[in-house]
Amino acid sequence: MIAIFSDTHSSHGHELEGEALTAAREADTVVHAGDFTSEAALEAFQAECTTLFAVHGNADSAAVRDRLPTARVVDAGGVRLAVTHRRGGGETGLAMFGRSRDADVVVSGHTHRPTAVETEACLLLNPGSHAQPRGHRPGFAVLEESEDGLEGEIRKPDGTLVESCTITEQ
């Protein structure tokens, strides 16, 4: 399982609870699309996850920015994920970012709005914010292997399904 988070915005910890915390602990790979805000939040995530791949966001402290890249590519669960906090150009800019990295999925954050948008190039996945939804539903995402590729779900921290998607093998 791949668990995906973004926009923690915490000065002291990971702010994970319920099924979101369980997913972070049990996932083979955890991806975070930035805005931990503090080193304490980053380190709390690292303490809960076996394998964490993260990028920094616009609200991250200088110390977090020094430790994390702006963008990265993660190969996990048979798919390639291109991870960034935000990109100019909206969905088109994110799709171009994914295409340039031969990605199946682009993971982004910044908006705090959980969404899954299928484009011709790739799936655009924003898990939302599990801790500071800012007027949107709180969220995180999971990707799990299926017979046809990966099944994706955006869930609330209590595990309630918000949206689902499928990433088929190419």
Results as ranks from 00 to 15, higher is better:
residue 34 G to Q: 07
residue 1 M to R: 15
residue 89 G to T: 09
residue 155 R to S: 04
residue 111 T to M: 03
residue 120 E to P: 12
residue 145 E to I: 13
residue 19 E to A: 12
residue 121 A to V: 00
residue 83 V to C: 08
residue 40 A to Y: 11
residue 139 G to I: 00
residue 27 A to N: 05
residue 47 A to Q: 15
residue 3 A to C: 01
residue 98 G to T: 00
residue 107 V to K: 00
residue 42 L to S: 11
residue 18 G to I: 04
residue 161 L to N: 11
residue 107 V to D: 03
residue 104 D to R: 04
residue 49 C to G: 03
residue 9 H to D: 14
residue 160 T to V: 07
residue 130 H to P: 04
residue 75 D to K: 02
residue 83 V to L: 03
residue 6 S to Y: 01
residue 50 T to P: 05
residue 99 R to N: 05
residue 152 G to N: 13
residue 133 P to F: 01
residue 92 T to K: 14
residue 14 H to T: 10
residue 18 G to R: 04
residue 169 E to M: 12
residue 98 G to A: 00
residue 39 E to R: 11
residue 130 H to E: 00
residue 69 P to T: 14
residue 82 A to W: 01
residue 157 P to Q: 05
residue 67 R to G: 14
residue 106 V to D: 00
residue 51 T to V: 06
residue 161 L to G: 06
residue 58 N to E: 12
residue 166 T to D: 15
residue 105 V to H: 03
residue 67 R to I: 08
residue 52 L to F: 08
residue 92 T to N: 05
residue 95 A to E: 03
residue 40 A to F: 10
residue 113 R to V: 02
residue 79 V to E: 07
residue 86 R to V: 09
residue 31 V to Q: 03
residue 166 T to W: 15
residue 104 D to T: 08
residue 91 E to R: 07
residue 84 T to R: 08
residue 81 L to S: 03
residue 125 L to Q: 04
residue 42 L to Q: 12
residue 98 G to D: 02
residue 99 R to D: 09
residue 14 H to E: 11
residue 27 A to I: 03
residue 166 T to K: 15
residue 143 L to S: 12
residue 111 T to Q: 04
residue 46 Q to I: 11
residue 27 A to R: 06
residue 73 V to N: 01
residue 107 V to C: 06
residue 25 R to S: 08
residue 59 A to F: 08
residue 40 A to M: 10
residue 39 E to T: 12
residue 9 H to S: 11
residue 39 E to V: 14
residue 124 L to P: 03
residue 89 G to K: 05
residue 147 E to W: 13
residue 110 H to S: 07
residue 144 E to R: 15
residue 145 E to K: 15
residue 59 A to K: 07
residue 105 V to D: 04
residue 30 V to N: 05
residue 92 T to M: 10
residue 156 K to Q: 10
residue 120 E to T: 12
residue 93 G to Q: 05
residue 112 H to D: 03
residue 29 T to A: 09
residue 155 R to V: 04
residue 19 E to R: 10
residue 3 A to S: 07
residue 23 A to R: 01
residue 48 E to R: 06
residue 3 A to Q: 01
residue 76 A to M: 12
residue 118 E to Y: 10
residue 33 A to V: 02
residue 139 G to R: 00
residue 131 A to T: 02
residue 13 G to K: 10
residue 10 S to K: 08
residue 47 A to C: 11
residue 129 S to N: 02
residue 51 T to K: 09
residue 117 V to K: 09
residue 121 A to P: 02
residue 167 I to Q: 08
residue 124 L to W: 03
residue 139 G to D: 00
residue 60 D to E: 05
residue 80 R to G: 01
residue 107 V to T: 02
residue 153 E to M: 13
residue 108 S to C: 13
residue 77 G to C: 14
residue 136 H to E: 08
residue 154 I to G: 00
residue 48 E to W: 02
residue 136 H to R: 05
residue 97 F to H: 06
residue 80 R to A: 04
residue 121 A to K: 07
residue 53 F to W: 14
residue 117 V to P: 05
residue 33 A to C: 11
residue 95 A to K: 02
residue 160 T to F: 06
